[in-house]
């Protein structure tokens, strides 16, 4: 067995070890990498930035803890930016394992900015069947959510006075993992013409660019890179920015493995001939 054949039969655990080392080194010896700001990320930032104090944004935290790594930095930064500018938020969590996680984030950030539930934000929580919930909210938030997450009737919350449906919010930002994204496009934008912005996982990003081009989406944050762009725009550098240097090294290692694997493949094929 020659060198190239041995390369082709390399135990995949060496690759895991290589990636693990590559990821660990920048964690122990951090460095910064430049982050290019894409127009679609800037569109989300500018939408929040151009919203006046007192106006309402609907923030949908539509992911489970398994997507926290990529999406939590986005939700955290958007929430901080909104609260720091005096923007009020209506927040929902339409992914089944997400409401507790979302509540934890809301209470942490609302405390940082001394924001009051019912006055500065309303947390609606979770209802099953996201498609039907999104459709019903287009008529009235009170149809799927007669009460908020804590059991208080929406009509008794001062912030909800005169707030009926998507017409009364400036726009919707959904930080989303999975097919709930389709419901926002189809129902909130398609049926009720609401302005929709997305923060999605890396895996989903490519699928949603066509909607950006068609104008059904007005802004898009893609994966940890999108989160790092947003952190940089909002001048709140955090986990996503820290992760970019690690991501760069990990990607270089993955590219190196792909190149080496291809060399091994073509050279062993040549030898056989």
């Amino acid at each position: 067995m020659n060198f190239y054949e041995r390369l082709m039969q390399l135990d995949r655990r060496w690759i895991y070890l290589g990636v693990a080392i590559a990821v660990t080194i920048p964690v122990l010896a951090p460095f910064k990498v430049p982050v290019y700001i894409t127009p679609e990320a800037k569109a989300v930032y500018e939408f929040v930035e151009n919203t006046k104090p007192g106006e309402i944004i609907f923030l949908a935290i539509d992911y489970d803890p398994n997507a926290m790594a990529e999406l939590h930095p986005m939700a955290r930064t958007i929430m901080r930016q909104s609260f720091s500018r005096g923007i009020r938020l209506i927040i929902s969590a339409l992914s089944q394992n997400g409401p507790g996680m979302a509540e934890q984030l809301i209470s942490q950030i609302s405390k940082e900015y001394n924001k009051k539930n019912g006055m500065d934000y309303v947390y609606l929580g979770y209802k099953p069947y996201p498609g039907i919930t999104i459709l019903a909210m287009g008529q009235n938030f009170r149809i799927p959510f007669p009460t908020d997450y804590y059991g208080t009737p929406l009509d008794s919350l001062p912030m909800m006075d005169g707030v009926r449906n998507y017409d009364d919010v400036k726009g919707i930002i959904s930080i989303v993992a999975g097919n709930i994204a389709e419901y926002w496009i189809n129902y909130a934008n398609g049926r009720y013409k609401a302005k929709v912005f997305f923060g999605v996982t890396g895996v989903m990003t490519a699928d949603y660019y066509p909607f950006l081009q068609s104008g059904q989406l007005l802004g898009l944050l893609g994966g940890l890179k999108g989160a790092s762009e947003y952190e940089r725009l909002a001048k709140q550098e955090g986990v996503a920015t820290e992760g970019m240097s690690i991501q760069t090294v990990a990607h270089l290692v993955v590219i190196a493995f792909i190149v080496v694997g291809n060399i091994g493949f073509f050279m062993s094929k040549k030898k056989k001939r």
């Binding site: 990636v19 890396g202 895996v203 994966g223 940890l224 992760g243 993955v254």
Partner: peptide
């Protein structure tokens, strides 16, 4: 983008 997501 999937690789980016998994590495994240």
């Amino acid at each position: 983008l999937t690789v980016m997501g998994r590495v994240s």
